[in-house]
């Protein structure tokens, strides 16, 4: 890759890495895995840097790589193992403001959704991707994105309502 392209990529990676990590976290519920997925996605972007339409397709392609990386993690057996460390520790610690608990409720509610619904709701309502971009990222039609997002939102509200009621 030319030095100018590398400089452009470095700038892009620096700007995107946090955003991608947060998106991945909402989809997988684990900050370490989210960071790995964000790195994997950026490496994939680097590999196709000259072939990507950088004016329109860069953001979508980065998200597509991210979703693929997160889904790939589920397929790796060692990734399916959940250690009872950080997440459970966060919950066990007293949180006077209740912010951490609220965050965890949302992440747990997201985790209860099927992966494709979770991806739809995160891409549409957190990453601000359009209907068409989300469809392209997930490789499904816009109708599929609409229906999956709708079902995901309904289920998410239901889960969060239940959580709030049980927390009272």
């Amino acid at each position: 890759m030319k030095a100018s392209d590398e400089a452009e990529f470095t700038e892009f990676a620096a700007a995107m890495v946090r955003r991608l990590r947060r998106t991945a976290y909402l989809m997988c519920g684990d900050w370490h895995r989210a960071e790995d997925a964000a790195q994997d996605a950026l490496v994939k972007v680097y590999r196709r840097w000259h072939r990507i339409n950088r004016t329109q397709g860069l953001n979508s392609y980065a998200h597509q790589c991210l979703v693929t990386s997160v889904f790939d993690q589920y397929r790796k057996p060692w990734r399916r193992e959940r250690l009872a460390d950080t997440d459970d520790l966060d919950r066990a610690l007293p949180d006077p403001a209740g912010i951490v608990d609220d965050r965890m409720f949302v992440v747990e509610a997201l985790a209860a959704l099927p992966p494709s619904q979770r991806a739809c709701v995160v891409l549409r309502h957190y990453s601000d991707l359009s209907l068409e971009q989300t469809a392209a990222v997930l490789g499904i039609g816009t109708g599929g994105v609409k229906s999956q997002t709708s079902r995901a939102l309904a289920r998410l509200r239901e889960l969060l309502d239940q959580t709030e009621r049980s927390a009272l």
Binding site: R22, T23, L26, I99, R103, M104, V106, V107, V122
Partner: peptide
């Protein structure tokens, strides 16, 4: 809620 949950 999503933005809050993803606060890093």
């Amino acid at each position: 809620l999503l933005a809050t949950a993803a606060d890093d």
